[in-house]
């Protein structure tokens, strides 16, 4: 059984708050991102203002594009590469900030200090008009309220049996249980407050979205689990950005390779295009290896540990 994953209707703030990753069971198991607000997402549907895309990497054989999507709750990166040629063509055709909807798979990179960096790899993307945006937000808001209600009821009474959630999808009840268990200390009122901006767009009183933020957002969340490692001082925002870029390129190279490894030389080359010198790349590699994030089991061949 390989059931198709539904596209969870969600917002940037929910994705950015999600830092728990889960792997499904069985062969070719999907990866899921568990949010504190009751979603267990593999595929998502987002809508908002999409910035002009920028290309990452100059190898014409392996094009990879990234744009930022802003909704009333925050910003999220949207990417498309050679493996999604239609989505990539659609992303490339976006000129300047445009209202758009995106369906894609969530992707999580975890830094060495518990920082989660989430992006959406687009499968399909299209520009939409304002009424369509408001309708999409109405769906997503209504489903977010439903899920927050499930989470709220389970937070109050974690032992409520499944049959007490008549009408709610079983996958939602399960996700809500996991959210409550895995994020016991998260304040959900802040997210509820952020949804007010969405409500105003649905009502038509707040049509204009904030302009795209200049850099991809990194959101830090307190996890109930012990941090992965790092007795050292928390890295700066810049270091974290470099780390993300490193892992981003690494994952991309691994995804496109036939043997599951990224070539070190190619990686360094590609990082240079991001303004990272070879020394900085080496330094990053050392740190990520030391933290057990990346490994080099074959000389010159890298992968995630």
């Amino acid at each position: 059984m390989a059931l198709r994953e539904p596209a969870w209707r969600t917002f940037a703030a929910e994705l950015n708050a999600a830092m728990q990753e889960e792997r499904g069971t069985g062969e070719r198991a999907a990866t899921y991102l568990l949010s504190p607000y009751g979603a267990r997402m593999n595929r998502v549907l987002l809508a908002g203002t999409l910035s002009s895309p920028e290309t990452i990497g100059k190898d014409p054989a392996q094009p990879f594009w990234r744009a930022r999507l802003v909704d009333p709750t925050g910003t999220i990166s949207v990417t498309a590469g050679a493996f999604q040629p239609r989505a990539m063509a659609q992303l490339q055709s976006v000129q300047g900030p445009r209202t758009a909807m995106v369906v894609g798979k969530v992707h999580l990179y975890r830094g060495n200090d518990g920082t989660a960096y989430i992006s959406v790899r687009a499968e399909s993307l299209r520009t939409i008009d304002e009424l369509t945006l408001r309708a999409l937000y109405a769906d997503a808001l209504s489903q977010s309220f439903d899920r927050l209600e499930l989470v709220g009821r389970l937070a109050t009474d974690p032992n409520l049996p499944d049959d007490r959630f008549d009408g709610a999808p079983t996958a939602w009840v399960r996700a809500a249980r996991d959210s409550v268990r895995r994020y016991p200390t998260v304040d959900r009122a802040g997210y509820r407050a952020a949804l007010k901006g969405v409500l105003e767009v649905v009502e038509g009183t707040h049509a204009v979205l904030p302009p795209p933020a200049p850099t991809p957002t990194h959101v830090r969340i307190t996890s109930s689990e012990p941090p992965a490692a790092a007795p050292r001082a928390a890295p700066s925002a810049e270091e974290r950005a470099h780390e993300s870029a490193f892992l981003d390129v690494l994952d991309e190279l691994v995804d496109n390779s036939s043997d599951g490894y990224a070539d070190l030389k190619e990686l360094v080359q590609r990082l240079a295009e991001h303004g990272l010198s070879a020394e900085m790349a080496e330094e990053l590699l050392d740190r990520l290896q030391e933290d057990g994030v990346v490994e080099e089991p074959i000389v010159g061949r890298l992968r995630r540990a």
Binding site: A138, F145, K196
Partner: peptide, 19 residues
């Protein structure tokens, strides 16, 4: 199509109730 006004009212009510 979507009845936007109706849905907006419904969502506003849910928002106020939750608050």
């Amino acid at each position: 199509g979507v009845e936007l006004d109706e849905r907006a009212k419904e969502l506003r009510n849910r928002w106020e109730a939750a608050r």
